[in-house]
Design a protein around this nucleic acid. Structure first.
Lengths: 215, 215
DNA sequence: AATGACCTTGACTGATTGGTCAGGCCTGCT
DNA sequence: AGCAGGCCTGACCAATCAGTCAAGGTCATT
């Protein structure tokens, strides 16, 4: 009985339910990023994924709920990147890996980063509880790791919070302000430029806290 | 003849025309910052400065024009900060002064910074020409100064652009993401915390590019 | 081919919002 | 007092947009 294999079970036009939802979420992420929640219209989102507007409301009850789903998806990606900050590794390795991962995220998920920035700038109406729980816990746990490094004399004494904010700010800037960067750069950054920017960010921060004596 | 001293010349309710326009611009800056252009309503702006909505349209023809005036005002403040990067000073002095000034701006003009961030994130529909002229010229001129420092062996070799982006990102983060920072901090930053953050940002960046051997 | 579950969509609606306007108001001048 | 010029505002449009709905389509199962 029941639906057996559910892959490709719906054949009317496009793919499965999951695929359609993902297409809508992709379009919504982009439109929300470029216009903000208030400036985004369901019609624009519909146009971006080639669906009639009424169809969006079949998959997502309301604009607010669609937005919430977009933000939740971005949150999951953020968590994944947070894991790359391994507290068991040496400070050089842990920080370099974390910064590199965040730069990759900025490149791969420009729109997600923008939606996140918008959400926080507007007072985090949706993710406030996440800021107060998951983000705060994560931040304090990494702050403890950094303080341990400082106590062991591996890292120069700095308040870990200012350091973390610096990493977040710098890496996310490449997504949130991509338009400004690309204007100054006369076009998108090349692979080599991304690598160079990542290396420079790692270099300045690591050296700035007393690591990486050489090179 | 004519209006002689024009200070306090209108007495109906509030202050002079300039004062009213400034009150509207202040309210608009805040509302645009917190809701984005699309999410902001003229009614909300009117409420924030205690004027009836129709009165706003007496002073500003349209929402778009009001927004443009807000952005132009922010641009003027930005220019003022840009001047604090004196190319004639030593790299330590020039960069430290510039970073400090930008941190002060983030503290004093949180909403302005947010409006700017919003504008750039949405593709800079209004300030595009400014990005391509004033900002690009300024950036290239400071990049030349930094390259000179590098050639003179005063600064470690880095692409000046990545360095400037890092400064912009980090300092503006304290305005744009103020809500997130205050959530993690269990409240607004104190004077001492602002000083500490500024000192840490200066320290990491200066040390990161090979300056400030001591301390 | 009939059934039923699920998907699609054009047309519609109620609410919101940018913008308008006519008439009222206040102030300084004569 | 009377007048003129600028300022103020409640009430009112026209446009836009989120969300609804009913009719129709598609597919697997029997």
């Amino acid at each position: 009985m029941a639906q057996a294999e559910n892959a490709e079970r719906q054949g009317s036009r496009a793919g499965s339910r999951d695929e359609i939802e993902r297409a809508i979420l992709d379009a919504a992420e982009r439109v929300f990023a470029e216009a903000g929640f208030g400036g985004a219209t369901m019609q624009a989102i519909a146009d971006h994924c080639g669906l009639p507007k009424a169809n969006l409301h079949y998959y997502f009850a309301s604009k607010k709920q669609l937005y919430r789903r977009v933000v939740e998806r971005i949150f999951r990606v953020w968590l994944q990147a947070a894991d790359s900050f391994e507290s068991s590794a040496s400070p050089e390795v842990a920080l370099r890996r974390y910064i590199t991962r965040k730069m990759e995220l900025s490149r791969a998920h420009r729109y997600g980063s923008k939606v996140w920035a918008n959400e926080v700038m507007h007072g985090a109406p949706i993710i406030q509880d996440f800021l107060e729980t998951t983000l705060r816990d994560w931040t304090e746990s990494r702050a403890r790791v950094i303080r341990r490094w400082i106590a062991e004399g591996q890292v120069r004494p700095v308040d870990p919070h200012w350091l973390l904010y610096m990493i977040w700010a710098t890496t996310q800037h490449y997504a949130d302000f991509a338009h400004q960067i690309e204007t100054l750069n006369h076009g998108p950054l090349s692979d080599a430029q991304w690598d160079a920017a990542t290396e420079t960010v790692c270099g300045i921060i690591l050296r700035g806290i007393g690591l990486e004596g050489g090179r």
